[in-house]
């Protein structure tokens, strides 16, 4: 019988490589940088193309001890959640590649407070940083401009840029040498459009991370999954405005669900709370990694370990 030939696709496109953070050599203070992207095939198909960098795992830390977080999550970090610098350090020790500093909307949130907080976090960890504002346009702009200035040289990722609000953040990134997170609502064309708008302002594509948004497992993940597959296929087929690494926030999404938050009064079939909650985050993240995520933002240290093992296994050719 004739040998079966391994079917390979010939992709013409390639995802851009982008680097987060800057070491002293590049004017920053990070102990290391993290590069993602560069794929020339679908996730982990080593037989067909290059997967030069593993997806990176970011851990989200909040500037204030979060209210309303699941105890499964708070207990895992212990006292570290009391202080954002300690939390960032704990995230690094837990094995994160990147730290995502999330500012909440509270009365003390001023540009000066944001600068101080950034300085403390930069001092506590040598990892590259992503910094997200509280998600309210005016506040975001005010805070992120201050953060951009204070973090000059660090090559931060500033976010989130949305079609309603990106100009100020992009301008700040341009002025101080940072990158941005470009978020759209799970739609290929919207994602392309926002990338075009941002690059039209002069920010090179190498400094944009594409954030197609996702839903949690059980709460819309299938939409995120398919949009990411379509974006990655478009990139490989040569559409340059989709050739950007993708960032998603499975941690935030998964820990919003009842499955992760409720320990009592739930059906017995849901099983052990911590087991189920962590599986919820891990499976949300792993499913998105299979569909093309380059940076996943997680919350629980155990999820970090398990997603790391998965990534390591997928990066090996064996």
């Amino acid at each position: 019988m004739p040998a079966i030939e391994i079917p390979k696709e010939k992709w013409s496109g390639r995802v851009r490589e982008i680097t987060l953070g800057a070491t002293a050599a590049d004017g920053g203070t990070r102990a290391k940088t993290v590069t993602v992207g560069g794929e020339t095939t679908l996730p982990f198909l080593h037989f067909e193309g290059e997967i030069p960098h593993p997806p990176a795992i970011a851990i989200e830390v909040q500037d204030r001890k979060p209210t309303g977080w699941s105890p499964v999550l708070l207990d895992a970090w212990g006292d570290a959640t009391e202080d954002v610098a300690a939390w960032a350090k704990a995230a690094e020790e837990a094995g994160a590649d990147v730290v995502l500093l999330q500012f909440g909307a509270h009365d003390d949130l001023t540009p000066e407070y944001a600068r101080q907080t950034l300085r403390r976090v930069l001092g506590a960890t040598g990892l590259p940083l992503i910094v997200f504002g509280p998600g309210q346009a005016e506040l975001d702009n005010e805070i992120l401009v201050a953060v951009a200035e204070e973090g000059k040289g660090e090559n931060l990722v500033l976010g989130v840029c949305e079609d309603k609000n990106y100009r100020t953040i992009v301008a700040a990134a341009l002025a101080h040498g940072h990158m941005v997170d470009a978020r759209t609502a799970m739609d290929v064309n919207l994602a392309k459009q926002l990338n075009i708008l941002i690059s039209d302002m002069g920010l090179p594509l190498e400094r944009i991370v594409m954030d197609p948004t996702t839903g949690a497992l059980g709460y819309g993940i299938e939409y995120g999954y398919s949009v990411m597959e379509r974006l990655r296929l478009a990139a490989l087929q040569g559409d340059s405005m989709t050739q950007l690494p993708m960032l998603v926030t499975p941690g935030e999404e998964a820990w919003r669900t009842k499955e992760a938050r409720a320990g009592e009064g739930v059906p017995e079939a849901w099983g052990d709370w911590a087991e189920r909650a962590i599986n919820w985050e891990v499976l949300t993240a792993s499913t998105l990694i299979e569909s093309g995520a380059d940076i996943v933002v997680l919350r629980h240290p155990e999820s970090l370990n398990r997603v790391r093992e998965m990534i390591n296994a997928l990066m090996s050719k064996e």
Partner: peptide, 14 residues
């Protein structure tokens, strides 16, 4: 184990 099977069944349904 229910705490593992439940998320998997949901993932499959999705």
């Amino acid at each position: 184990s229910p705490g593992t099977v439940y998320p998997l069944l949901v993932m499959r349904a999705n």
